[in-house]
């Protein structure tokens, strides 16, 4: 599957390009994606999901197949087109502040 990351996180983990590829087995959930992301790129640990609370960081959103799925439980399955890599999971940093 594919995940698109915000520029700050690509810079932090020295990731070239906009997307990373992850290899997951079903069920493909947001939590599983974050687990795999942190395993492949340890520098990203805690940046998407607060490691203390286990919750999505407030200013990040998850988009899949043109839907905002940020408020879904982290253990909800992602759409099949995201799970099979046809569409990326977008992790978006909210535009706020200066």
């Amino acid at each position: 599957m594919r995940v698109e990351l915000p520029p700050h996180l690509r810079q932090l983990a020295h990731i070239p390009g906009h997307e990373v590829e992850l290899h997951l087995t079903a069920p493909v959930t947001i939590a599983a994606v974050i687990d795999a992301l942190e395993a492949q790129y340890p520098a990203l640990r805690g940046t998407v999901r607060d490691y203390t609370t286990g919750k999505r960081r407030d200013f990040l959103r998850f988009f899949a197949c043109q839907e905002d799925i940020s408020l879904q439980p982290l253990d909800a399955s992602l759409p099949s087109r995201v799970a099979d890599g046809s569409e990326p999971l977008l992790i978006i940093a909210g535009i706020a502040g200066g």
Partner: peptide, 27 residues
């Protein structure tokens, strides 16, 4: 650090020419 992405600690061993993330778990 960042209001979006939380805390990172960076370490350099060459006077700041290059950096690598260190641990960011403060429990």
């Amino acid at each position: 650090c960042s209001g979006w992405f939380g805390q990172q600690i960076q370490r350099s061993d060459d006077g700041g020419l290059t950096w690598n993330p260190a641990g960011n778990t403060f429990t």
